[in-house]
Amino acid sequence: MPTTHATAHAKAGMIARLNSPDYDRWAGQIRATGGCRQPIHLRGKIDHYDRATGRLCTATPPSTSQTASSASPAKPAAPPAAPPAPRRTEPTPTT
């Protein structure tokens, strides 16, 4: 199992984060994204349309929308490509 060795700089950063006034908000975002290191930040509004008529029923402005400051985990990284097949070499004749 890999081990992690924190440098003095990393330790100072962790202590600063833990003592930050917005720690609870930050921790909530980390929990919401499943600990994703590079979440996708969504911004915008939500529009609800009637499927039968196509008319706009309700629109939620960005200030109250859940997507106004929502972070979602990014997709998992694509698996690495298969290594190239070994080159076939012809046997060298011996004399």
Rank of each mutant, 00 (worst) to 15 (best):
P83E: 00
P61K: 02
P79N: 04
A8F: 08
L42S: 02
P91A: 06
Y23K: 12
T64D: 15
T94Q: 08
T7L: 03
T3D: 09
N19Y: 13
A71E: 08
D47K: 08
Q38L: 07
A32R: 12
T67G: 06
L42Y: 12
I46L: 05
T60S: 08
A10R: 05
S72F: 12
P80Y: 01
H41N: 08
T53P: 00
S70Q: 15
A85N: 00
A68T: 12
P21F: 10
P61I: 13
T33P: 13
T3A: 04
A82D: 01
Q29C: 08
C57R: 11
N19F: 14
S72W: 12
P21G: 06
L18V: 13
P86C: 00
L42A: 06
R31G: 10
M1V: 13
R51F: 04
P80D: 02
G28C: 00
R87G: 00
R17P: 08
K75G: 02
K75L: 01
A82G: 01
P93A: 11
I40T: 14
S70T: 15
S20V: 09
P61C: 00
T33G: 08
S63M: 06
E90H: 05
P62H: 07
Q29A: 09
S72Q: 09
P91F: 04
M14E: 05
S65W: 11
Y23R: 12
A10H: 07
R37K: 06
P2Y: 13
T95F: 13
A78W: 10
L56W: 03
T95V: 12
H9F: 02
A8Q: 10
Q38V: 13
D47E: 09
C36F: 13
Y23F: 14
D22M: 02
N19S: 13
S69T: 15
P21Q: 07
Y49S: 00
